[in-house]
Nucleic acid binder design. Structure first.
Lengths: 244, 244
DNA sequence: CGAGGGTTTGAAGTGCATCAAATAGTGTGG
DNA sequence: CCACACTATTTGATGCACTTCAAACCCTCG
């Protein structure tokens, strides 16, 4: 995909003058990265901001006793590195490709200048950060209150297309976007617990599955089960913006 | 405290022209609020942004099955409401005074205008949001990986003054800022677990306590115990900016 | 002194992690 | 196309961490 079209897909770049979009394009670089390779480490100074064209990027940290905290897993039209623009200038996590991926990189200096010289871009950035914060608030809430099967259910619900949200249209089969161990980690549980959580969902809600494909026969029953320990009914506000 | 002096204490307002500070002051209002009373609900449209002059404000949500998720507890020179400026315009949580508190309120429209017309303010806002995001990332990591005593230890460490951080100077007695049940909730555990976690800390690190006062005899032993399951040693980056 | 909230303690149960082993899937070279 | 190796996933058994429920204790304040 060419660069202007790609930027057009990312809310951060909506509604900007052609002139500044051109400027971004001029300084942007495509970057291919192979599965398993690392883009940055927590203490690296963030020289680049990234937009994902295709693939999956895992953002994570490792602890002193050797565990891993997966903070986010970003895919097409997602971005990362924007939180290192002002204030602390390190990334704060490792970024690792969990699939072969295509990224666009833009030097953070270009973004910094744009923020200082184009109100619209600054506003877009603040909007994006506000939305991200709402997502994180939701995540903290879920960690506080949901059990493992509910977190898995919530994760599945977020994979459903908007078209199925009213519950009238049937939900197409869901395919897990990456391997189960990674999903488990992202949800703060072990692969074993994840496996058993799926079984619990099969028992308690109307879903069926074979290998990595899950059929949600009744999205409402899944939502009733999963959102019970959450402050929002499905579809939650957090999801509403960003799909289909 | 008069309004300009208060704003001076909040990083969001650092380095701004007198003119715009005056403008903020002109539109700001003091507000007293009594313990137990509610400032806003999750679905309220955020007309005001708040800065805390004194007291403690609990930001929380309640779930369908009647539990509470305490997302933050804010005190002097802290602020809230800034994440509702652009994008979704509701607060997203209840704000309740857990002590008699004094706040300063500023209409969000004033802030919106300022962001659009003063780059410096926009940059400050982005900086503040970046820092908040780092804090939330840390919080998620801790929920994923730390057990209850470690989370409590981490909470205690954050209450220590900078002067004690090198471990040479003795640490003054720490007083819990609000009741234990609330601390427990904030850390995602029950009051019972919190109580037992403190006992575990007493057993495993060099701390002693009586009622709500805690003596940290050796800050390093507490840090070694608490930060083991964390990606950062104490003092963590998250804390470095914001005290003493 | 007695009432009531906050806090601690104890006993019992649940949920998740851990460890070990079985099974299913995937890719490789013969 | 099959045999093999290797990884991903599931299953089972056990233990620990945290919750729950109940009761005791404490502190403060009338």
């Amino acid at each position: 995909m060419n660069i202007p079209d790609l930027l057009q897909q990312v809310p951060l770049f909506h509604g900007l003058d052609d002139q500044i979009i051109d400027h971004f394009c001029h300084h942007a670089n495509h970057r291919q990265i192979k599965k398993g390779s690392m883009l940055c480490a927590p203490d690296d100074v963030a020289h680049n901001f990234y937009i994902i064209e295709s693939g999956w990027i895992k953002l994570f940290r490792d602890t002193q006793d050797g565990q891993e905290a997966v903070l986010d897993i970003v895919t097409t039209y997602g971005m990362f590195g924007e939180s290192s623009l002002f204030g602390k200038d390190t990334y704060g996590w490792y970024a690792e490709a969990v699939e072969d991926s295509n990224l666009l990189s833009i030097p953070v200096n270009i973004l910094k200048d744009a923020i200082q010289n184009h109100q619209m871009f600054a506003v877009n950035m603040i909007t994006a950060m506000s939305e991200h914060r709402r997502r994180l608030d939701g995540e903290i809430e879920r960690f506080m209150l949901q059990n493992a099967p509910q977190r898995v259910g919530c994760f599945l619900l977020k994979l459903t297309p908007k078209s199925a949200w009213d519950g009238d249209n049937p939900c197409p089969p869901i395919t897990l976007p990456y391997n189960k161990a990674l999903v488990a980690n992202r949800l703060g549980m072990t692969p074993e617990t994840f496996s058993r959580a799926l079984k619990a969902l099969k028992k308690n809600t109307k879903i069926t599955m074979s290998k990595s494909t899950i059929e949600i026969e009744d999205i409402n029953s899944l939502a009733a089960y999963s959102c019970e320990a959450c402050s929002n009914f499905f579809p939650c506000a957090e999801d509403t913006d960003k799909r289909d």
